[in-house]
């Protein structure tokens, strides 16, 4: 009885280690094919369309509302201290440092990551990946690498759009509806938000999230059990793992960037 339990624990541990190893082998294989994909930009542009263009609507709308909520909440708190002019700083710093990269990564994991996992998983279940291999086409380089690079390129651009739209949303609520002075809103923001510390670090964060989210999504699809149930489980796991990884990694990156 006890030995059975121990064996089960050991089996799951070995399984996890094996999956981790396969994930890293896949990452290596995808990176090896990167040069080839960059020479065939058609493959890349199709994936940028899938991951980037099709996510624009949800990113834009979410960014607008997150910025508007920040403007409203920030105003309610700041006005008690007579510091309503600092609203611009609050909105911009929160968006550029944290909310932009993180919320974008979570949305992309849900919108595009799940789709990638399902697509790759179904390709495996219907043996299209094996078919490619039969024709001496490497499915990792032909199918996975373009999606991987597309995700890495699209993520920081989407995060920048999210933050920019969010700042405009905060401006609309703070200046347009609540009557904060427009000049103070922008000048305080420009005085306190640093290009290198805030904006570049935000871009670095979102590139890291792009790697993690697409890597998890592609690996879950590539490693799926090739049945309809397996694909559905992989899709769920892809979103859950990506969300957890993004939030955990965000803490680590924040500690590295701002902790000193």
């Amino acid at each position: 009885m006890l030995l059975d339990g121990l064996a089960r624990l050991g089996r799951s541990g070995i399984g996890a280690a094996e999956r981790l190893g396969r994930a890293h082998l896949l990452l290596g294989a995808m990176l090896m094919g990167a040069g080839e994909v960059l020479r065939r930009p058609r493959l890349l542009s199709a994936q940028l369309y899938n991951i980037g263009v099709l996510s624009l609507l949800i990113i834009g709308v979410s960014g607008l509302f997150v910025g508007m909520v920040l403007g409203l909440q920030g105003y309610i708190t700041l006005v008690q201290f007579g510091a309503a002019e600092s609203l611009g700083v609050v909105v911009a710093a929160a968006l550029v440092r944290e909310l932009g990269p993180v919320v974008t990564a979570l949305l992309v994991a849900g919108r595009a990551g799940s789709a990638l996992t399902a697509e790759i998983g179904l390709m495996k279940a219907t043996e299209q990946l094996s078919g490619l291999e039969m024709m001496a086409v490497d499915p990792v380089r032909r199918i996975l690498t373009p999606r991987f690079l597309g995700g890495i390129i699209a993520m920081p651009l989407l995060a920048a759009i999210f933050s920019a739209v969010g700042v405009l949303g905060g401006y609309f609520v703070g200046v347009g509806l609540l009557g904060v002075d427009a000049g103070a809103f922008w000048s305080q923001m420009q005085a306190k938000v640093d290009f290198q510390d805030d904006i570049l670090n935000g871009v670095i964060k979102s590139v890291a999230f792009g790697v993690v989210v697409t890597w998890i999504a592609l690996f879950q699809g590539y490693d799926t059990v090739p049945t309809s149930e397996g694909v559905s489980r992989s899709t769920t796991r892809s979103v859950v793992h990506a969300a957890l990884a993004v939030l955990g990694l965000d803490f680590v990156l924040t500690a590295l960037m701002y902790g000193d």
Binding site: S45, L48, Y49, G52, V53, L56, A92, V96, A154, P156, L157, L158, A160, I161, S163, A164, V165, V167, W186, M189, Q190, A191, K192, V193, D194, F195, D198, I199, V203
Partner: peptide, 23 residues
Amino acid sequence: LVGLFMAAGFVALFFLAMQVSNL
């Protein structure tokens, strides 16, 4: 469309750099 998307992304970055930060 991809070109538009990338242009929008760069415009957003430029906006953040110029209008929001102290650059």
